[in-house]
Amino acid sequence: MFSNKYILVYTLVMALISSVSLAFVVNGLKPMHDQNEAVFKKKDILGSIKDQIGVDPSSLSPDEVNKLFSEKVEKVVIDAKGKKVEGADAEGIDLAAEEKKPEQDRKYPLFIYKGDKGNIYLMSVRGNGLWDKIWGYIALKDDLNTIVGAAFGHTAETPGLGAEIKDNANFPKSFQGKKIFEESNYVSVKVVKGGAKNPEHEVDAISGATITSVGVSNMLNKGISVYLPYLESIKNKS
């Protein structure tokens, strides 16, 4: 039998050793973690317009991604009223954190890809799926109306059903060529069950994933709308 004093000292020493060693490991690897996160996010963003870039960003090395991003992408931060925010880094904006703020204080990142065939505007959207959050990037052509690319992600949608928004390449692809304006009214793009009837503003839902599909519709409707004032100002300038 060990005395209580021994046990007390034993636990203290054990806690000290383990916490110090973990602190060293975490601190030592922190720069690599940050770099990985940043590259992953860039790949995610560029992944939505891989057909326009001509290469699949997920096959590029971290250096190539950074180079492509710094050469071709302009970063803009806008506030809830659609005004450009000076001096903020769009890559540092996390929509998950913005969601917790009151609506008028939120900031949104806009990435402008300067390609050979004109600018592509990449908007970041976030909403609710069936089980947890879903998010995505929507790319608009320089007419600021036609969608040229989309990519979605999710935390915990059902594999084979809701998770198809990410796993099935045909779902994001079906957004290409859709328009978010009808005449001059904002209508967004809807995900509808039973076959899309309106070829300009509707895409087919995923069978068996009604709530996720509705979630994508709502996310797009709300998410794109916050960018509209800024897009309007670009349109008026040119």
Binding site: M1, F2, Y6, I7, Y10, T11, M14, A15, S18, S21, L22, V25, V26, L29, M32, H33, N36
Partner: peptide, 26 residues
């Protein structure tokens, strides 16, 4: 100490797993 052996075991496992996770993430 026999009384706290489970806790000691868990701490050792948790430290090792955290190291594995950090290395994988890097």
């Amino acid at each position: 100490p026999k009384q706290i052996r489970m806790i000691v075991q868990l701490v050792v496992i948790a430290v090792l797993v955290t190291i594995v996770e950090q290395v994988l993430k890097a």
